[in-house]
Design a protein around this nucleic acid. Structure first.
Lengths: 175, 175
DNA sequence: TCCAAACCCTTGGATGTCCTAGTATATTGC
DNA sequence: GCAATATACTAGGACATCCAAGGGTTTGGA
């Protein structure tokens, strides 16, 4: 990890924006830049925890998704939709997970176009272990206050819905 | 863009987490996953706006950084530190920007190890144009309410400081 | 019935990020 | 003053993401 900078580079950028006549968009610019940087920091922490398992975050997400599927299997296109990544990214992840013996591909029983990805026994075990590690080493000490976590879930939930990610109006806080 | 899902996959994941005995970390997990997805959406929007300019976000960030430097030039290691990316990522970006004629490399006047990256006239023009496009097409319609933008800047500012990004306690709201 | 359109997955290519290692230059300490 | 250590940049490799294009399978309308 590099040494801390003396000043916040994003706050500096915000000032530069304002000084250049973009005062009305300086704040959203700063917020978006902060999201980018935060994502980078969090992803690095996650990858660091997953490395001993021989997993990356992309592959872990697929394992976790499969572990919550009723039968431990999903069509590739379904996984792509739920993970919200390009189909080729799923192909890539499945290739590597299959080489590691954590998932297997099988033909869809009724649709010849579709391929199912299924968790192996080792895959299910790996998903459990990796999940425990992530919860214990990352999520339980995220660095966000409880209130802020709720803020983030709400703000980004609205954002993602408006961005076209999903249609429902489900609100966990009302359960 | 894919069609919207009927349900929010992150809210579903949060429920699965709770059902599996990870109730205490389900919320931070959901918040972090939402940050990842939001970053992906925003990056796609930004790349989309920059594409006509032949720029990517990584290259744009370097151009913007240089455009705010007093002399339009910075040592590579300085750029790496301020952009908070690996030195090799800067090398990569400079290689491509140099091929496009937007920046030039030059030796540091007193330190033989250091290379300066400097904006060309075309580079400065490009930075201005791309910045205007991003402000008009992305930042001015970020999809976040003004209040939420302030929340995000505050929350992620604290997070980044605690993560070791920078040392100051600068708070824009007190200016 | 049958062919065009739609859908599913994969291959190949472009980019970005990081890590590791190697080369060159500066700085430090004895 | 010189060797050891630190610093700066780059080359090569592993992965991830997306896009474009191609081949196989289904579906749907004439």
């Amino acid at each position: 990890m590099a040494n801390p900078l003396p000043r916040d580079p994003i706050a500096d950028a915000q000032r530069n924006w304002e000084r250049s006549g973009w005062g009305n968009t300086a704040a959203p610019m700063a917020a978006i830049t902060a999201i980018m940087r935060t994502q980078q920091i969090l992803l690095a922490r996650i990858e660091n925890v997953l490395k001993p398992f021989g997993l990356t975050f992309a592959r872990y997400e697929l394992l976790a998704l499969l572990s919550f599927a009723r039968t431990g299997a999903l069509p590739m296109n379904k996984a792509s939709a739920l993970l919200q990544v390009h189909p080729t990214s799923v192909t890539n992840a499945v290739d590597r997970l299959e080489k590691s013996g954590l998932v297997v591909r099988s033909p869809h029983p009724t649709d010849g176009r579709t391929t199912l990805v299924e968790l192996t026994t080792e895959g299910r075990t790996m998903a459990k272990r990796a999940t425990a590690a992530l919860n214990n080493e990352v999520f339980s000490q995220s660095g966000f206050a409880d209130d802020d976590v709720e803020h983030l879930i709400r703000i980004f939930g609205s954002f993602r819905r408006r961005a076209g990610d999903f249609n429902d109006v489900d609100d966990l806080s009302t359960r």
